[in-house]
C-alpha cells in the first residue's frame, strides 16, 4: 500500500472517531436558534456558555455529581481494601483453591448482569437498602470486584518474589517485608486499580437505574438520561453541556492511569 493511501485511511479513522465528539462540543456551544437551522453548522456562529448555566438550572447536576462522587470513591476504596489481600494471596499461593478462585473470576465475566442484579436487588430490599447510595455502593463493589482482583493480582505478580524473600532473609518478618518492600512497588498498581474502580462506578448506569428510584438520590448518569424528554430541540444544548461535564472526571483519571501503567517502576528493581 502506498503512503498516500495509508494517510487517507488514517484520516478516515480520525474523522470517524472524532466527529461525534466534535458534534457534542459544537452542540453544547450553540444557541437554540442555531440548532434549529436546516443546514447544521460545525462551528457555532455565536458560541455561548448559556447551555452550561441552563444545565445547572434545569437539573440538580451538582447534587447528582456529588452523589456520584461519593458512591465512586466509596466503591473504589472498599473494593481495593477487600481485593488487595485477596489478590496478594492469589498471586503468591498457587494451590488448587487459588486456581479455582481466579478461574471463577474469569468465568464470572460471561454471565449477564441480570443474573447478578436480581438477587442483589432482593437482598438489598430485605436490608432496606434499595433507593440508597449505600445499596448502590454495595452493588458497585460486587460489579468491580472481579476485574480489580484480576488487575491487582497482575501487579503483585510483577513484584519479584526474590525481593520479598531477600527482605525476609535479611531478618524482616513477612509483614515488615510486605510493608517495606512490596507496598512501595505496588503503590502505582493500587492507584491504577483505585482509579479504574472509580471510573467504573462513576460511569455505571444499569445498577443505578434499578436501585435508585427518587430524583433526590439519583447519580449523574440517571440525571443525564432524564434530560432526554419529549421536550425536543430546546433542551439539546444543556444536555450536551451536562454530558461534557460528566465525562471530565473519567477522562482525567483515565489519562492518569495510562501514564501510570507505562511508568516502568519495576525496571531494574531486581537487576540493579
Amino acid at each position: 500500500m502506498t503512503r498516500a493511501l495509508k494517510y487517507l485511511a488514517l484520516l478516515g479513522y480520525v474523522a470517524f472517531l472524532a466527529f461525534p465528539l466534535l458534534w457534542l462540543l459544537s452542540t453544547a456551544l450553540k444557541t437554540p436558534r442555531e440548532m434549529a437551522l436546516i443546514d447544521p453548522t460545525w462551528i457555532p456562529r455565536r458560541p455561548t456558555l448559556a447551555n452550561f448555566a441552563d444545565a445547572f438550572a434545569e437539573q440538580d447536576l451538582v447534587g447528582a455529581g456529588l452523589r456520584s462522587l461519593l458512591v465512586a470513591v466509596a466503591t473504589a476504596v472498599i473494593t481495593v481494601v477487600l481485593a488487595l489481600p485477596a489478590a496478594y494471596a492469589l498471586a503468591r499461593f498457587r494451590g488448587p483453591a487459588g486456581k479455582i478462585a481466579i478461574g471463577w473470576v474469569l468465568l464470572s465475566q460471561v454471565f449477564p448482569v441480570v443474573l447478578v442484579i436480581i438477587p442483589l436487588f432482593m437482598v438489598l430490599r430485605r436490608l432496606e437498602l434499595v433507593n440508597t447510595l449505600a445499596g448502590l455502593t454495595v452493588v458497585h463493589v460486587v460489579f468491580v470486584m472481579p476485574f480489580a482482583l484480576w488487575m491487582l493480582r497482575g501487579y503483585v505478580r510483577a513484584v519479584p518474589r526474590e525481593l520479598e524473600e531477600a527482605a525476609a532473609v535479611d531478618g524482616a518478618g513477612r509483614l515488615r517485608a510486605l510493608a517495606a518492600v512490596v507496598a512501595p512497588l505496588l503503590a502505582p498498581g493500587v492507584v491504577a486499580t483505585l482509579l479504574f474502580s472509580f471510573i467504573s462506578s462513576w460511569n455505571e448506569f444499569l445498577f443505578a437505574l434499578v436501585i435508585l428510584k427518587d430524583p433526590e438520590v439519583e447519580t449523574l448518569p440517571l440525571t443525564l438520561v432524564r434530560f432526554v424528554g419529549p421536550e425536543g430541540v430546546a433542551r439539546l444544548g444543556p444536555l450536551a453541556a451536562a454530558s461534557l461535564l460528566a465525562t471530565v472526571p473519567s477522562l482525567v483519571f483515565f489519562a492518569i492511569i495510562q501514564r501510570r501503567l507505562r511508568s516502568g517502576l519495576m525496571a531494574g528493581a531486581v537487576k540493579g
Binding site: F19, P20, L21, W23, L24, T27, I199, W202, N203, F205, L220, P221, L224, V225, F227, V228, L236, L239, A240, S243, A246, T247, S250, L251, F253, F254, A255
Partner: peptide
C-alpha cells in the same frame, strides 16, 4: 473507553 456509556448514547442521539 473512558466515556460513560450514557454519555456515548446521548452524544450519538445528537448526531
Amino acid at each position: 473507553w473512558a466515556m460513560p456509556p450514557v454519555v456515548i448514547g446521548l452524544m450519538w442521539r445528537l448526531v
